[in-house]
Simulated assay, not measured.
Amino acid sequence: MTDTPFPPPGWAEAATRAGTELGLGTDFTALDAAAWERVCRRVGQILAGQGQALPPGWEGALARLFGRDAAAVPAGDALARDEADTVLAEKGEVFAPEDDA
């Protein structure tokens, strides 16, 4: 899995919004793995709702942004990406698998 070198603009704001909406706060280094997974899933939904496609490794880039161990990528990686793809498809932004190559 290729890591995104740095999070694009808006990711930090999406994470802050996600942590606040979920009632988990914004001290992301203090969250346990399950809570961090919930934040990542919500961040994926927020970004997809804004029309952003999530690149492979986006969770690791987000984790590094907040000082978390990027090796502890949430198990929800595929689920969050699937949700993001669904939102983009509903908006008519259909892409083929070769677009990810």
Rank of each mutant, 00 (worst) to 15 (best):
A35I: 04
A48Y: 03
F28E: 00
L65Y: 10
D82Q: 15
G92N: 01
G67C: 06
D99C: 09
L22T: 00
A34S: 13
E21A: 13
A78I: 08
G67F: 06
V94L: 14
L62G: 10
P55K: 05
T20G: 06
L54H: 04
T20D: 13
V73W: 04
A30R: 13
F28S: 02
G23P: 06
A96W: 15
E93M: 14
E98N: 11
E90V: 14
G76S: 15
T26R: 02
L65F: 13
L31F: 10
D85R: 14
G76A: 14
G76D: 07
P74S: 15
R38H: 10
F95I: 11
V43R: 00
L22R: 02
V94D: 02
A72I: 08
G25W: 08
R64H: 03
A30P: 05
L62N: 00
E83P: 01
P56F: 13
P97T: 04
Q52P: 00
A53P: 05
L47N: 02
G76Q: 07
T20W: 03
D32M: 08
E59V: 15
F66V: 14
Q50S: 08
D27W: 10
P97E: 01
W58P: 04
T26H: 03
V87N: 00
C40G: 09
G25P: 09
G23Y: 13
I46F: 11
D99G: 00
G51E: 03
P74T: 14
E21N: 05
V39F: 06
G57R: 06
L24H: 01
A89C: 11
W11V: 15
A75L: 11
A78T: 12
A35G: 02
L31V: 06
E13K: 09
E90N: 12
V94Q: 05
I46D: 04
F28A: 00
G60I: 06
A12W: 08
A48P: 03
E93A: 13
R68N: 11
R68M: 01
F95Q: 02
R81V: 12
E37V: 12
A34Q: 11
G67I: 02
E21H: 10
P55V: 08
R64D: 09
R17M: 12
F66Y: 12
I46W: 08
G49L: 09
A61F: 07
F28R: 00
L24W: 07
Q45F: 12
G19V: 07
A18G: 01
W36I: 00
R81K: 09
A75M: 09
C40D: 09
D85K: 12
T16L: 14
P55F: 02
Q52L: 12
L88C: 01
P97G: 07
F66I: 07
R68G: 08
A48F: 01
E93Q: 13
V39C: 07
T16C: 11
T86P: 01
A48E: 02
T16R: 04
G19P: 05
E13H: 04
G19R: 00
A14Y: 02
A33N: 12
A48R: 00
Q52E: 11
G76R: 07
W58N: 03
E13C: 05
A89F: 15
A14N: 00
G19T: 04
I46G: 01
A35Y: 09
D99K: 06
A12T: 04
A61M: 08
T26Y: 08
D82T: 12
A61E: 08
G23C: 05
E37T: 14
